[in-house]
């Protein structure tokens, strides 16, 4: 009994820790004061009204969406194939290759941005979006490879073996046995990749250009001297958007199904 109570207490404290900054930002978006205060002073929706008139923020939101969807799709597909191959193939230098695939995460992302920017200019590729997609795919790939890879380790091999003994074709084993088993991990990867891309500041600093400016960079360059309530309003809408995304995923794939059979 005691472990159970302390577990609940710990979870409650963790939730406060997780949600604290969020509460301040959301509260700050409704304040009447000219800067974010906690607790908020009064209640107003004027910052949202102000935000709605900003076409630049809307454009940046669309840029970020396009980028995040493209990068997430590319990273999920490439990463899942690589994770499957790494789990199955047993070649010399596999661990080194695995470590190599993690490298986008361990190289300073700002420098990756500078290096990629330079390379793209060198090739005279006139699209900053392409550079952003390559950069974002690279930094989200390690999340996919690690998450899917971990699920493959835990995968009950006897299941696939049994299927093979029963004469199932490899493709069938993949799609009917392996894929359903790693589906939760793939969904988690999609969530990670999307969110990491959507909130990416550091790699984007040098890769955004006049033709494309992501929302985090828009916010970064907009803030001159303080987090004003309009920025809090943008953040609040983004939080709402991301929650809707999670709910949408749940409706579409059934998170309870995807995150296990209990419940």
């Amino acid at each position: 009994m005691i472990p159970r109570i302390s577990l609940s207490l710990w979870t409650t404290l963790t939730l406060i820790f997780l949600l604290g900054p969020l509460v301040i930002i959301v509260g700050g978006s409704f304040t009447e004061a000219p800067h974010v205060t906690f607790p908020p002073e009064g209640f107003t929706l004027k910052w949202y009204a102000q935000l709605m008139e900003r076409e630049d923020f809307l454009e940046s939101f669309i840029d970020s969406m396009v980028l995040a969807v493209a990068a997430t799709a590319a990273a999920t597909i490439l990463g899942t194939i690589a994770a499957l191959a790494l789990a199955r193939e047993n070649f010399k230098g596999r661990e080194a290759f695995r470590a190599f695939l993690m490298s986008p995460l361990i190289l300073p992302t700002v420098v990756t941005g500078v290096a990629l920017f330079q390379f793209i200019r060198l090739l005279e590729i006139p699209s900053n979006m392409l550079g952003l997609i390559i950069g974002h795919t690279l930094i989200t790939l390690p999340y996919v490879i690690r998450t899917v890879g971990a699920a493959l380790v835990g995968l009950d091999k006897s299941l696939a073996e049994a299927a093979e003994v029963l004469g199932a074709k490899p493709a069938r084993i993949l799609f009917q046995v392996v894929m359903p088993a790693i589906a939760p991990a793939i969904l988690v990867s999609v969530i990670f990749a999307f969110i990491v891309s959507f909130d990416q500041v550091t790699i984007s600093i040098f890769l955004t250009g006049p033709d494309v400016m992501t929302l985090p960079i828009r916010i970064y360059t907009y803030i001159e001297f303080a987090i004003d309530p309009m920025i809090a309003a943008v953040s609040t809408l983004l939080i709402l958007f991301a929650y809707l995304l999670v709910v949408g995923l749940e409706r579409a794939f059934g998170l309870d199904k995807v995150f296990g059979k209990k419940g």
Binding site: T11, P21, D199, L215, P216, I219, I239, D256
Partner: peptide, 24 residues
């Protein structure tokens, strides 16, 4: 957890990632 509690907890756990880096 049961499924609806699970969704809520998952959403809460994801929340730090949803706030913009600079704002956070």
């Amino acid at each position: 957890a049961k499924s609806h509690v699970k969704s809520l907890l998952l959403a809460a756990v994801l929340s730090p990632l949803l706030i913009n880096l600079v704002v956070r």
